[in-house]
Design a protein around this nucleic acid. Structure first.
Length: 785
RNA sequence: GGGCCGGUGGUCUAGCGGCUAUGACGCCGCCCUUACGAGGCGGAGGUCGGGGGUUCGAGUCCCCCCCGGCCCA
C-alpha cells in the first residue's frame, strides 16, 4: 500500500529523544499539582535525598520507582502531590566539609564553617537535581524544599516547642553512645556494628585475703580503672566458691564478685569484668547491681584524671600501654585475637564509647504500644506487606528514649535560652527560626524568676532526624500553608529504602503521632537495595559505584527505569548489570518498531464485528491488564513490566501482527475485516502504552503524541472488557504453536517464508483460517503434515 | 543468639501441590522474510542448596541443616 505513510518516521528510538519530550513536559507544565482540582488527592512524602555526594545508579533507580508511584496514582484518577526536597542537615555534610578543606570543625569559627558546608551542599544539590530531572521524575522541581531553609527549620523548632509544652521533652545526664571523633551523642538508631579483630586479654586477679588467683578475659583492659565488679554466670559451678568474696584488680582495687546471667560461661574464662562503660550491657548491669560508676573517659575520647597515670592518653594508646604495663608486672595470663562486634559511628566508623552527658530526650517508650497498633490494627498498609516486620522488630527492641541534642554545627538549633540568674530554660514562641548561639532571645525577663539579668543561648543542635521526621507535614503545608495542609493532611504514602526504617520511618510515625494523634501515612512502601553486579552494596571504598550518566547516554532513562522495575519484586534487593540494561533497550526498540508499523494505518471507529484472531489478542490483552493492575495496586512494578514486555515481544509482535498484516495493509476484500485489524492494532498499542507509561514515560509519551491526541500521561489505565473473555483465548497457544510449526517446516524444506505451502490446518484452528492461510500462503488442503 | 529475605541451566529470573520446569541475557549453528539483524528457526546447558517428612503426586506444604544478604542483640 503505497499510500500508507507511517506517522512515526524515525527508524530508531534514541536516548536523546527523551530530552525532547522532557522539554515538552516542562513547557506544558504537565505534572502541575492543582490543589483545587475535583479529583481525590494523593500526596507522596518524597525522601529528600542527602546532598553529600554523587548519586549512583541504585539511588537513581530508587527514585524512578517513586516516580512510578506518582504516575500510577495519576493514571488511577488522582491529583498527585509529588514534592521534591533535598536533605541538607547533619553529620555527613560536616564530615565531608572537613575532609574537603582538611579542617577540623571544632577548631574553626562556627559561622565560617557553616558557610563552607553550604557551599558543599549547593554543589551536591545540583548533581542530584540534574539526575532527578534526567530520570524524568514528575516531581515539582520549581518549588523544591531544603531541610536547612528558614521555613523548614522554623517548623522543626516549632514542633519541638509543642513537644516541650506537652511534656515530651526532658534533659538527663546518662550514659549514651558517643562518637569521640564527631564529639557528639548518637541515638541507638545511628549506631552501626562492625566485625573487627580485637585483642582479648586474660588478666589475673587475686582473691582478697588469699593467694589464689582467678583469670578474667576482657576486650577493654584500658577500662580497668573503671572496673567495679566481676561477674560469673549463676549456672557456672567453677566459680560458686567466689560468691560474696572480693578480688583485687591488677591496679590494686578491691571489687566484689557477683552472680549474673549476663556472663557467658563459654566466653573467655566465664568471668567478666564490669566497667563504666564498656558497652550498653555495662550500663544496665551497673543499674541492676547498684554499682557506682567511675567515669574515666572524657568527651574527647581521652582518659581523665580518674585513670591515674594513664590520664591524657587516647583509648587506643591507653589500651596498648596498660597491656604493656600489666605484662611487665606479670598480670597478663595470655592475649588472644578474636573477631569482635564493635559499635561504630554510622558516619565516620569510629568505635563508639559510652559516656554520660547531659542531653535532651524526646519520649518514645510510652508511645511504642500505640505505634505497634498501626501495624497490628492495620491502620497503615505496608507494601510489601511483610516489610512491616522491619518496623515491628525495631519497636520491640526500643528500651530508651530518643536523645535529640547533638554537639554539632550544621543542623537546626535547639531554640532555648537559659536565664543567667536562675539557670532555667526559657523557650520562645513557635513560628520563627531561632539561633540562640548567636542571637539575643525574643524576651528579656525570665518567666521563672523574673530576673532581667540576661540569658545564655543554647549551643547545641538537633539530631538531623528531628528535621526529616516531619517531612510529611512540612511538604503538605503545615504552618506555612494552612489551607493546603487542611486539604492534604499528612502525606498519604511514604516511599523509602529498608535501610532507614528504624530512623526515618520510625521517627516520622513517632513525631507525627505526637503532633497530630494520627498515623503519618496510609501507605508505606519499602524498597530493597540496589547492589552491584556481584551483589555488594555500592560504596566508594569498594570502588564499585555505577554512575547513572553513562547509562543515560547509552540507553536512556527509560531503559534504566524499566530495568529497575523488571529486575526484582518490591522489597527484594536487586543487582545492577549494564548488560541487562542493554537488553531492556532492545525491548524499547522493539516497542518503537511495533508502533512504527501500526502508525502506518489509520485508526478507524470501532467496527461492529471482530474476527476470532482479533478477539483472541484482545482476550490476551485483558489478561495482561488484569495482571499488571495487580502489581500497580501494590506499587510493585515487576509484574506490569515483565507481563507487558512478554506480551509485546512473544505474542503481539510475532504472532498477532504477522497474522493480520495483510488485513492491515488492506489487501483483503472484506472492508470490515480490514477495519477490525486496524482498530485492534491501535487499541492494543494504546493499552500497552498506557500500561507502560508509569515505567517508561518518555518513549510511551513520544509515541503517543506522534500517533494520538494529547499526552499518554493524562490518560487513565486501561480496563479489561468482559466481552473479550472469549473461548478464542484458550486457542491462542495452539495458534502460536501452529505458526512456529509452519515456520520450522518451511525452513526444514529450504523454503522461503513467502513461498506457498500446501498443508492441512488443524480443525480447532478453523476460526483463524483466513489469517493463517494468508500468513503462511497455504494453498489448499492435502500434502504437508 | 534472634528476626526478615533469598538460594531454580554460565548469569538473572518465573512458577508456590498436578501433563515433558518459565522467560530474559549470554553462547553455538542455520536462514533471509517488505515495522524491526534490535529479525526468524533450531540447539547445547538444570540431580530446582542438602537431608528427612506429608501426599496418589513436591521447586511448590511441614521439620531440620547448610550457604548468602540485611537488620537487631
Amino acid at each position: 500500500m503505497a499510500s500508507l505513510k507511517p506517522k512515526i518516521e524515525e527508524k530508531r528510538w534514541k536516548p536523546e529523544l527523551e530530552l525532547e519530550i522532557q522539554k515538552v513536559w516542562e513547557e506544558e507544565d504537565l505534572y502541575k499539582f492543582d490543589l483545587d482540582s475535583d479529583k481525590p488527592k494523593f500526596s507522596i512524602d518524597t525522601p529528600p535525598p542527602y546532598a553529600s555526594g554523587k548519586w549512583h545508579a541504585a539511588a537513581a533507580i530508587h527514585y524512578s520507582q517513586i516516580d512510578m508511584i506518582a504516575r500510577t496514582m495519576r493514571m488511577k484518577g488522582y491529583e498527585v502531590y509529588f514534592p521534591f526536597g533535598v536533605d541538607r542537615n547533619g553529620l555527613p555534610v560536616e564530615v565531608e566539609t572537613e575532609k574537603r578543606y582538611k579542617i577540623r570543625m571544632f577548631e574553626y569559627p562556627r559561622e565560617e564553617f557553616l558557610e563552607l558546608c553550604r557551599k558543599f551542599l549547593d554543589e551536591a544539590e545540583m548533581d542530584i537535581l540534574s539526575i532527578s530531572k534526567r530520570l524524568g521524575l514528575s516531581a515539582d522541581f520549581k518549588n523544591y524544599f531544603q531541610t536547612d531553609s528558614e521555613m523548614w527549620r522554623a517548623v522543626t523548632q516549632a514542633t519541638f516547642i509543642y513537644a516541650w509544652n506537652k511534656g515530651y521533652v526532658y534533659e538527663d545526664y546518662r550514659p549514651n553512645n558517643y562518637c569521640p571523633r564527631c564529639k557528639t551523642t548518637l541515638a541507638d538508631a545511628e549506631v552501626e556494628y562492625k566485625e573487627m579483630p580485637t585483642k582479648l586479654v586474660y588478666l589475673k586477679f587475686r582473691v582478697e585475703g588469699s593467694d589464689e588467683e582467678v583469670v578474667v578475659a576482657t576486650t577493654r583492659p584500658e577500662l580497668l580503672p573503671a572496673c567495679e565488679a566481676v561477674i560469673y554466670n549463676p549456672e557456672d559451678k567453677r566459680y560458686k566458691w567466689l560468691k560474696g568474696k572480693r578480688v583485687i584488680t591488677p591496679l590494686g582495687k578491691a571489687i566484689p564478685v557477683m552472680e549474673h546471667p549476663y556472663a557467658d560461661p563459654k566466653f573467655g574464662t566465664g568471668l567478666v569484668m564490669i566497667c563504666s562503660y564498656g558497652d550498653r550491657a555495662d550500663v544496665q548491669l551497673f543499674r541492676e547491681l547498684k554499682l557506682r560508676p567511675t567515669i574515666i573517659i572524657d568527651e574527647h575520647g581521652r582518659l581523665n584524671e580518674k585513670a591515674g597515670k594513664y590520664q591524657g592518653l587516647t583509648i587506643k594508646e591507653a589500651k596498648e600501654r596498660i597491656i604493656q604495663d600489666l605484662k611487665e608486672q606479670g598480670f597478663v595470663d595470655k592475649v588472644e585475637v578474636i573477631q569482635h562486634r564493635t559499635p561504630v559511628c554510622w558516619r565516620c566508623k569510629t568505635p563508639l564509647e559510652i559516656i554520660p552527658m547531659r542531653e535532651y530526650y524526646l519520649k518514645q517508650r510510652e508511645f511504642v504500644d500505640d505505634l505497634r497498633k498501626f501495624i497490628t490494627d492495620k491502620l497503615v498498609e505496608f507494601h510489601p506487606e511483610w516489610s512491616a516486620t522491619y518496623w515491628m522488630n525495631w519497636l520491640n527492641s526500643i528500651d530508651s528514649d530518643w536523645p535529640i541534642s547533638r554537639r554539632r554545627y550544621y543542623s537546626t538549633e535547639i531554640p532555648i535560652w537559659y536565664c543567667k540568674s536562675c539557670g532555667k530554660p526559657v523557650l520562645p514562641e513557635p513560628g520563627k527560626y531561632y539561633r540562640p548561639w548567636r542571637e539575643d532571645p525574643p524576651f528579656n525577663k525570665c518567666p521563672h524568676c523574673g530576673s532581667s539579668e540576661g540569658f545564655i543561648g543554647e549551643e547545641r543542635v538537633f539530631d538531623t532526624w528531628m528535621d526529616s521526621s516531619i517531612s510529611p507535614l512540612v511538604y503538605n503545608g503545615y504552618m506555612w500553608n494552612p489551607k493546603m495542609f487542611e486539604k492534604l493532611g499528612s502525606s498519604d504514602l511514604r516511599p523509602q529504602g529498608k535501610d532507614i526504617v528504624r530512623t526515618w520511618l520510625h521517627y516520622t510515625f513517632l513525631r507525627v503521632y505526637q503532633l497530630t494523634g494520627k498515623p503519618a501515612f496510609k501507605h508505606v512502601w519499602i524498597s530493597g537495595m540496589g547492589l552491584d553486579e556481584k551483589g555488594r552494596a555500592m560504596s566508594k571504598s569498594l570502588g564499585n559505584i555505577i554512575y547513572p550518566w553513562p547509562l543515560f547516554e547509552k540507553y536512556g532513562a527509560d531503559a534504566l527505569r524499566f530495568y529497575g522495575a523488571a529486575q526484582a519484586h518490591l522489597g527484594s534487593d536487586f543487582r545492577i548489570s549494564e548488560e541487562k540494561i542493554a537488553g531492556v533497550f532492545k525491548f524499547l526498540q522493539k516497542l518503537w518498531n511495533v508502533s512504527r508499523f501500526i502508525s502506518h494505518f489509520p485508526e478507524p471507529d470501532k467496527p461492529e464485528r471482530m474476527t476470532p484472531t482479533d478477539l483472541w489478542i484482545l482476550g490476551e490483552l485483558n489478561e495482561v491488564i488484569r495482571d499488571s493492575m495487580k502489581g500497580y495496586e501494590d506499587f510493585d512494578f515487576f509484574d506490569p513490566a515483565n507481563r507487558v514486555r512478554g506480551f509485546v515481544w512473544n505474542v503481539f509482535a510475532p504472532h498477532y501482527i504477522e497474522l493480520v498484516k495483510d488485513r492491515a495493509y488492506g489487501s483483503v476484500p472484506n472492508e470490515e475485516e480490514v477495519k477490525a485489524a486496524r482498530w485492534t492494532l491501535h487499541y492494543v498499542l494504546r493499552s500497552v502504552l498506557k500500561l507502560l507509561a508509569p515505567i517508561t514515560p518518555h518513549i510511551t509519551d513520544y509515541i503517543w503524541r506522534k500517533m494520538y491526541r494529547g499526552s499518554v500521561h493524562k490518560e487513565l489505565f486501561p480496563e479489561p472488557r468482559d466481552e473479550w473473555d472469549t473461548e478464542y483465548l484458550k486457542l491462542g497457544k495452539k495458534l502460536m504453536e501452529f505458526n512456529s510449526y509452519v515456520w520450522k517446516l518451511k525452513k526444514e524444506r529450504g523454503m522461503r517464508l513467502s513461498e506457498p505451502i500446501s498443508l492441512e490446518i488443524p480443525e480447532e484452528l478453523e476460526p483463524f483460517k483466513g489469517d493463517i492461510v494468508r500468513l503462511h500462503k497455504i494453498s489448499g488442503a492435502g500434502g504437508g503434515i
